[in-house]
Amino acid sequence: MPNTGFALPGVPTPTPEAFRQPLRQLLERTLGTRRTAQRRLHQGQGQPVIVFPRQHTGPESTAALRTVLEESGFRAHDWGQGMDQGPGTMGLNRWLRKLEECVIDVFEATQAPVTLLGWGLSGIYARELAKRANPLVRQVITLGTPFNTTADPQRSCKVLALLDSAAERLPLAVRHRLRQTPPVPCTSIYSRDDGLVRPEQCCERDSAETENIELSGVRHEELATHPRALEVITHRLAQPEDRWEPFEQAVRLHA
């Protein structure tokens, strides 16, 4: 069969990939995503998010994450309290009252509901702040946060132990409160290979606005920079304010 195509002398014939790449870039701009070497990052439109650090660390532990979020079009804010050593003698309730000021400040500055993103112990802060200031909070995302206190009956979790550092141990009523779901959408990202908290401590009860997403082979200190976690986080943040759907469901629908 004769070849009906043609090529100019000295000009290489375009390969299929040469056509695919511009098309892929066009689709990513249309869908609001961009690709890294390993994962897709969803693009934002200035949605605000407060990023809380991992226990015993400060802003440096979330600097890489906040940079990714800023480059993806979101407004990422540090929590403004330096290193997280737990509430200490202040106690959890007074500590949350202090952190609530940051939520109010970001809401007033952006005039938009704020996503709270907590890592380890600070995920407890994020969840409790969402209960206290839920009209100002859009959603909560946690990374390796052991909020399910029923999975730690012996109080052996080293992360939760930081809440028992005040003059008295955390009352049972407060521990019960910690596992109650905030009145906003919640996404819990966790790993069975965390090494610091057990996966069952990080699992939320199933509902229309909760989701537990498991990562494989990820240590606790790696959760904020893992490519899969970044894809999930940016997807959560990029969703329209009036519509929330589970990440896994969205991936199936738009695959």
Score class of each variant (00 low, 15 high):
S61Y: 13
S61F: 12
T62A: 12
T89F: 14
R94G: 04
A64Y: 12
S61C: 11
R75D: 10
T89Q: 14
A63M: 12
G82A: 05
A63C: 10
Q81A: 08
A64W: 13
W79P: 00
T89P: 15
G88L: 09
V68Y: 10
E100Y: 01
K98T: 03
E60L: 15
Q81E: 13
E60Q: 15
F74Y: 08
V106L: 08
S61H: 13
R97Y: 02
V103Q: 03
E60C: 06
Q85L: 12
F107G: 01
R66T: 05
R94M: 02
G80W: 12
V68T: 14
E108P: 00
F74L: 06
E70Y: 10
M83T: 15
D105I: 04
D84S: 07
S61T: 11
T67K: 15
V103R: 09
G91M: 04
L96M: 05
T67V: 11
V106Q: 10
E100G: 13
A76W: 04
V106S: 09
S72F: 05
G88S: 09
P87V: 08
D105C: 01
G91C: 07
G80K: 12
A64S: 09
S61G: 04
G80S: 11
C102W: 03
E108Y: 15
W95K: 00
S72H: 03
L65E: 03
C102S: 11
E108N: 14
E71D: 14
D78G: 12
V103L: 05
V106H: 09
N93E: 02
R94W: 00
P87M: 02
V68S: 04
A63K: 14
F74M: 08
D105K: 14
E70P: 00
T62K: 11
D78K: 11
D78Q: 12
S61W: 10
M83A: 09
V106C: 08
H77R: 08
G91H: 07
G86I: 05
I104H: 10
W79V: 00
L99I: 01
R94C: 02
L69W: 03
T89L: 15
L92M: 05
N93W: 02
A76K: 01
V68R: 11
W79Y: 09
M90D: 06
L96W: 10
R94Q: 09
C102Y: 05
E101A: 11
H77A: 03
S72P: 02
D84M: 07
G73A: 14
E100K: 13
L92R: 07
G91V: 08
A63P: 02
W79G: 02
E100R: 13
G91A: 07
A63N: 09
L96C: 00
A63S: 09
R97E: 02
H77C: 04
G91K: 03
G73K: 08
I104R: 15
G80T: 11
T89M: 14
R75Y: 08
V68A: 09
L92T: 03
L99C: 01
I104G: 03
G73T: 10
G86N: 06
L69K: 06
G86S: 06
R66C: 06
R94P: 01
D105N: 11
A64R: 14
A76Y: 04
C102N: 04
D105Y: 07
M83D: 15
L99D: 00
